[in-house]
């Protein structure tokens, strides 16, 4: 993978562990800092937050990384929880910002292991939990 050599803050990995093991968060929103040399934690979602609240917390016109824990009823009727890793890079923002997020995706992904599915979203309308759940239901 060609990367741009971005550093990732330790918060990201720590809070991800809290999300996954302690189940204390619903989502994490991760961004690149203003100096464009480090990936930092932007926002953390409460455990009872919904997907709509997550969508409100996301900026519409700026790229972000996000981790979200989906809960839904699976094919067998049992409740399932799956963690998705999202790269949100809207087509409307400038290529410089999109480029930074696309090249540093790999380093962020390594810090939020393990997760169930990686999703690349490029449009506000595609940020949709129904569509994400479809990846796990066949």
């Amino acid at each position: 993978m060609m990367t741009a050599g971005m550093r990732v803050s330790d918060d990201v990995a720590n809070e991800y562990t809290n999300l996954r093991m302690k189940r204390s968060h619903r989502y994490l929103i991760i961004r690149v800092n203003d100096d464009k040399d480090e990936v930092i934690l932007d926002q953390v979602g409460e455990r009872d937050a919904t997907f709509e609240q997550f969508k409100e917390a996301m900026p519409k016109d700026q790229p972000r990384f996000a981790v979200f824990e989906l809960e839904f009823t699976g094919n067998s009727g049992a409740n399932e929880a799956k963690i998705v890793f999202i790269l949100y890079a809207p087509d409307i923002c400038d290529s410089g910002a999109k480029f930074i997020y696309a090249t540093s995706k790999d380093v962020v992904r390594k810090k939020v292991q393990p997760f169930n599915k990686e999703i690349q979203v490029n449009d506000w309308a595609d940020l949709d939990d129904e569509a994400f759940i479809k990846y796990f239901k066949h």
Partner: peptide, 16 residues
């Protein structure tokens, strides 16, 4: 040296 399609896809904010 970098492959042209890789750069084009990154410039569109996509790694896949």
């Amino acid at each position: 040296i970098c492959k042209a399609p890789v750069l084009a896809s990154f410039a569109c904010g996509r790694s896949t």
